[in-house]
Amino acid sequence: MPKLIKFSLVAIWLFVSLAAHGATDTRIFRIAMTPAFLNDQHALLADWRAYLEVRLSRPVEFVQRDRYRDTMDLLQQQKVEFAWICDYPYVVLKKDVRLLAVALNEGKPTYRSYLIVPARDTQTHSVQDLRGGVFAYADPYSNTGYLVPRFEIKRSGADPATFFKRTFFTWSHRKVIDAVAAGLAQGAAVDSYVWDTLNKVRPDITAKTRIAWKSEDYGFPPLVAHKNVPEADFLRMQRVLMDMKNDREGRALLERLKLDGFIAGSPRLYDGVAEMMKLFSEP
């Protein structure tokens, strides 16, 4: 290829890409947030949003819903482009979404389910000890807050539907901790990341609870994008998230989120959830 043509092509490509880059894109990135983390830290969310807007050169909007099901609906109806959801909904929605990023919790892209009981209960060491009690679940689409304890009960040969005298949903991991701290529930299953974070922010609340049992590791609640999100947007968002640990502001935000950063992650992280789902004959 003559040198001139080669040069011209490069110049055109540069020009086009620069022009595309220079024009401010006004389409909003809508990111659904779930109570998979401490979603009542509104100031933190506002700062994070400002950070993302600068890095993406695009308006960003966080859409908060309490129930995982609502967030899943938002994704399926494409009312949001991205969402930070629990691992269980991710497995449920696997056909509609792509894995965008996974947060690093204490250096690993994993978390666990904690079985917590009131601090004065020193006898309970597994969910089996709570038979006939009052138990709090976070959300029926939560892995660590619903699926794990039920799986444990089922594995012991009991029927999760009748194992407890009374169960209820608080629709948030944070409130699950409250329910146990207040003595309303004799036990609850909670996202380890939420409990650990709360333990740093409000140790007075977590002091009223005791971790009676810890599950194995599961893939950390992933950030997902609807599969219809353009590849460029997908990559751009992924890049910004993964670069957060590389600048000062991003590190400050991560520090407040009690996370170590974001990685691209692998869907294989969530195979464990899929195993459990099979046991409950979910899809």
């Binding site: 709090a136 009374r166 209820f168 949903f169 608080t170 629709w171 409130k175 329910a179 207040a182 309303l184």
Partner: peptide, 12 residues
């Protein structure tokens, strides 16, 4: 709707 937690939030 048997929202026990919400009931607790209301009474507390």
């Amino acid at each position: 709707h048997d929202e026990m937690w919400q009931a607790f939030e209301i009474v507390s």
